[in-house]
Write a protein that binds this DNA or RNA. Structure first.
Lengths: 97, 97
DNA sequence: ACGTCCAATGCTGTTCCGGCATGACGCGGC
DNA sequence: GCCGCGTCATGCCGGAACAGCATTGGACGT
């Protein structure tokens, strides 16, 4: 389970469509499809129902979506917080000279 | 920024020592050292002060540690929650036959 | 029955990554 | 002052992981 896989999962969940999610993530469809399969394999359960129109979220997928968004948001907050702390302390990237 | 890197970071932060953290993570010291360097590079600021005894957490590092623990805990919860939801719904891994 | 649209798979070149050996640096003992 | 020890960092290499291309397999609509 990697952050990249979670980003892929959220994109597919929101688009309901692997190809469209791939465009959004600036990758191609096959690796994105594999990301989802890898997640499903790791968790031991399918996350989407494959329907003719694309991918429909299963209950397990909805459960994951909730946590995945939280995780991604937390990663974002962590990044910003550390960068702010770095600026506040006079960091390596921004020596006030 | 990957989950593996965050695990590495937390281990080093808690041990204050790359070599010992490496033992705990069952990897060797060089890749672990590189994980920390990669994080510092990505965030644009050092996270540890290198002291003769090992690695001392900087304020930026403490800020990250807080969020890193939260993220890792959330990943754990996500994994368990989905697996439980899968069992509750009659999942692929456990067909009741 | 055929064409269309979708995800999944086979394959290949590249990139990433871990481990081994070694280097660079600082400290302490002598 | 010199040497030895302990620490993290770096050069290198072999294997695994990954993205993209081309293609397949399957389902629906017409």
């Amino acid at each position: 389970m990697s952050i990249t896989h979670l980003q892929s999962f959220v994109a597919v969940a929101e688009e309901g469509h692997v190809g469209r999610a791939a465009l959004r993530l600036h990758i191609t469809q096959p690796p994105l499809s594999r990301h989802i399969l890898a997640l499903e394999d790791e968790l031991g359960t399918p996350l989407f129902e494959r329907v003719p129109k694309g991918m429909r979220l299963l209950p397990t997928g909805e459960a994951l979506l909730h946590h995945a968004r939280r995780i991604l948001a937390e990663v974002d907050v962590a990044t910003r917080t550390v960068r702010e702390a770095a600026q506040g302390s006079g960091a390596a990237s921004k020596p006030p000279a």
